[in-house]
Amino acid sequence: MDVARDLALALDETLLMREVGLTPDPWQAQVLRSTGQRILLNCCRQSGKSTVSAVLAVHTALYQPASLVLLLSPTLRQSQELFRKCLNVYRLVASDVPPESETKLTLELANGSRIVSLPGKEGTIRGFSGVSLLVVDEAARVPDELYYSVRPMLAVSHGRLVALSTPFGTRGWWYEAWRSTDPWERYTITAAQCPRISSEFLAEEKRALGEWWFRQEYFCEFLDAQTQAFSRDLIERAFGEVETWTF
């Protein structure tokens, strides 16, 4: 065992990312080193948000013995994709913490920690408690009732919640959390800030997707649905005017 290396990895999550051959972008390093309990990652497609979340999940499992890390997505297939990224990170680290068991849904380590991939159905995920880290992937597409059913898992453990997504309209808990005054630590990373996405590719995507999808997927904008007759802002201002004239 290389005690100095292990201590360095324990103290700096970015070193774990470098250990698997990846150089963190500045925002990724900031997220990994953050001590925030509630984090929202509003990031464009292919920006590296799931990678940084996988590194954070593995670091938690390795250096917080007996921790429980839960991965939640709208569908089981999506949460399994994030789980595979966690497995890849864990295997590349060559950790001194060996696996006790491994399935398609769970990695259990010798230090008592677990990383569990959850099915995306409210009725089948209850029962977990003492969660150290809850990662909600594709958060804008996670139904409100599913999100509300997992938050109590953090109540006693005071665990962390990291939610990552691109926007999907002006509705749902993800949008409300982003625009709220609640103490979330918020990050916005657009395609223009990602060095791995070229301007040529973005120009092609803009032509192929159209303005609405392009602005949402690559520039992280919360946009009203294209079929919506009235904008959300207009509706909210109308209700505000009604309340003003209420006697």
Rank of each mutant, 00 (worst) to 15 (best):
Y175W: 14
H158G: 14
S50Y: 02
I115N: 06
L107P: 02
T35K: 12
R33N: 14
T60H: 04
Y187M: 12
S53P: 01
T60Q: 13
W213M: 14
W178G: 05
L154S: 02
G172C: 13
M17W: 00
L68M: 15
P24V: 04
P167D: 05
M153H: 13
Y63M: 10
R114M: 10
F247T: 11
C220L: 01
D233I: 04
G159H: 00
V58Y: 01
E221L: 00
T60M: 12
C220N: 07
A94T: 11
C220V: 10
L7S: 09
N111P: 07
A140E: 01
Y90I: 05
K206D: 02
V55Q: 03
A238D: 10
A229I: 10
T14D: 13
S149K: 05
T170D: 03
F168R: 03
T60I: 07
G48L: 02
Q46Y: 05
Y175E: 04
G112Q: 03
L32D: 11
R126W: 04
S198W: 00
A29N: 09
D12N: 12
P167M: 00
L92T: 09
E145G: 06
L70R: 03
D224W: 00
G172I: 07
E217I: 02
W173Y: 12
A203Q: 04
P143T: 07
L16G: 11
T14C: 14
F219N: 04
A10T: 10
E200H: 07
K49E: 14
M153K: 02
S95K: 15
T181H: 10
S34K: 05
V55K: 01
M1H: 07
E108S: 14
W184M: 03
V52L: 12
I39P: 00
E176W: 03
Y218N: 03
A155M: 15
T190L: 06
A177S: 14
Y187R: 05
R179D: 05
R5K: 13
D233C: 06
L32T: 11
E243P: 08
R232V: 06
Q226W: 06
P195D: 14
E19D: 15
C43M: 13
A238M: 09
P183D: 10
G120S: 08
G159A: 08
S50P: 06
P152Y: 02
R207V: 13
A191V: 02
S132M: 12
Q80F: 10
C43V: 07
W173N: 08
G123M: 08
A4V: 12
P143I: 04
A192N: 08
A238H: 12
V162S: 03
I125N: 05
L82G: 01
K85H: 13
V242G: 13
V31N: 02
A140S: 04
A57R: 03
F83G: 01
D25K: 10
A208R: 13
T124H: 12
L15I: 09
Y63W: 15
E243V: 10
S231H: 10
V97Q: 14
G36P: 11
V69N: 07
R160E: 08
R237F: 06
Q46W: 03
D233H: 09
N111E: 15
T166P: 02
V93P: 06
G127Y: 04
R151G: 06
P98S: 10
L82N: 08
L109Y: 05
